[in-house]
């Protein structure tokens, strides 16, 4: 392929030489025409070079490579010395700022949490205090109440004892009355039926009978 290309380049060169030769002929006809001819020759020469692919025109390769190398060297120098470190520092600064802000936010959040905990603790303390007061009051009232109940109980007990004593007295007197009545009635009955009974015998009989009843 390269040999073919060289052949093509050679033919192109011959062609432009021809054109140049014609331009020289034209030069003989006058200065104006010569200038004109030279321009035309140059234009035609460019045309001849362009008839193939400009990419394979090896005569322009050193030029392109030279300017490419120059451009790349400048670009690399600018990028590696100025632009890239600058962007890297900006990005890391931003990262740092974001991290710092996040940490500050975390700190504030922690503070808020602490405040909430303190509030909760105070609330719980107040509540327990109130409960303590309530319990103390309740105990005092209970004590008073207990004392009153005990007093009342004692009074009731005293009165019950007294009442029982009186009931017992009444019962005893009633029993004695009933015995007296029974003895009197028995003695009268014995006297009416004509018996002559000893007062002591009658008492004994009545007592023994009454004992059986009472039991």
């Amino acid at each position: 392929m390269i040999s073919l290309l060289q052949e093509a380049a050679n033919t192109a060169a011959e062609h432009s030489e021809d054109v140049a030769g014609r331009a020289v002929d034209a030069a003989a006809q006058g200065a104006d025409a010569a200038a004109h001819g030279a321009e035309a020759a140059a234009a035609q020469g460019a045309e001849a070079a362009s008839s193939g692919m400009p990419q394979l025109d090896f005569s322009t390769f050193p030029n392109q490579i030279f300017w490419l190398v120059v451009t790349m060297l400048i670009l690399y120098w600018v990028m590696s010395r100025i632009a890239l470190p600058r962007i890297a520092s900006v990005l890391s600064d931003r990262q740092g700022a974001i991290t710092g802000d996040l940490m500050a936010a975390e700190e504030f959040k922690q503070k808020a949490k602490d405040a909430e905990a303190a509030y909760d603790a105070a609330l719980a303390e107040a509540r327990s205090e109130a409960q303590k007061i309530v319990a103390a009051n309740k105990a005092e009232i209970q004590k008073v109440l207990d004392a009153a109940i005990a007093d009342a109980d004692a009074e009731i007990a005293a009165r019950t004892v007294e009442s029982e004593k009186r009931i017992g007295q009444i019962r005893d007197s009633a029993q004695a009355d009933a015995q007296t009545v029974a003895k009197d009635v028995t003695a009268e009955l014995v006297r009416i039926f004509g018996g002559n009974a000893d007062q002591a015998q009658i008492d004994g009989a009545v007592d023994s009978r009454l004992k059986g009843v009472r039991q």
Partner: peptide
């Protein structure tokens, strides 16, 4: 194709 058209 381009080589055939323009360069050969």
């Amino acid at each position: 194709a381009l080589l055939l058209m323009f360069a050969v």
